[in-house]
């Protein structure tokens, strides 16, 4: 299963086609416990030939920039629109991955996306020891992260 490249391709296509913000991916996180300075996270489940949870984690400035670009207006606080916008990004990412895996005869179904906000998000287990891929992306306003936790069993 190749997740990292698919996630990068999906994220770049979505941001290039519908959000119109320049992003650049970094290498997937490869170290253990890291506190990501994030304040809002959106997630969506995938189930079928494997199970996965795809999440988008953003710090406040990044989440406001992304939401503002999607809505075409200035956004000043993390509110329902911000959670909705990030939820829709997670939905499009999952849809892209569903189609990409379908081309490899891997069938998946999507759940309804959801989003939460808080002070920070802690990523507490090592990506190298668990079935988890975390890819940072750079925006002018800071970094955001796309995470995929999966079970192949």
């Amino acid at each position: 299963m190749e997740f990292a490249n698919k996630i990068v391709q999906a994220t770049e296509e979505i941001f290039g086609t519908m959000i119109f913000l320049d992003i650049s991916p970094e290498q997937p996180l490869a170290v253990g416990k890291e506190v990501l300075d994030c304040h809002v996270s959106a997630m969506i489940g995938l189930s079928g030939d494997f199970s996965a949870m795809l999440s988008v984690h953003c710090a406040k400035p990044t989440s406001l920039a992304i939401t503002g670009a999607m809505l075409g207006m200035e956004v000043e606080e993390i509110d329902a629109d911000v959670k909705d916008a990030l939820g829709e990004i997670s939905n499009m990412l999952a849809g892209y991955l569903k189609d990409a895996f379908a081309e490899e005869d891997v069938a998946l179904e999507l759940s309804i996306p959801t989003a939460i906000s808080g002070k920070s998000v802690t990523i507490s287990s090592s990506p190298t020891k668990s079935n988890r891929v975390i890819i940072p992306f750079n925006l002018e306003q800071g970094r955001f992260f796309v995470e995929m936790k999966f079970s192949l069993g």
Partner: peptide, 27 residues
Amino acid sequence: ISTETGADIIDEAKSYGAKGAVKKPFT
């Protein structure tokens, strides 16, 4: 207009009268 534009889903949508499909992200 959806992230879900697999052939099986679109065939079902067309069986209920859908005239086409646009995949997100779209231009």
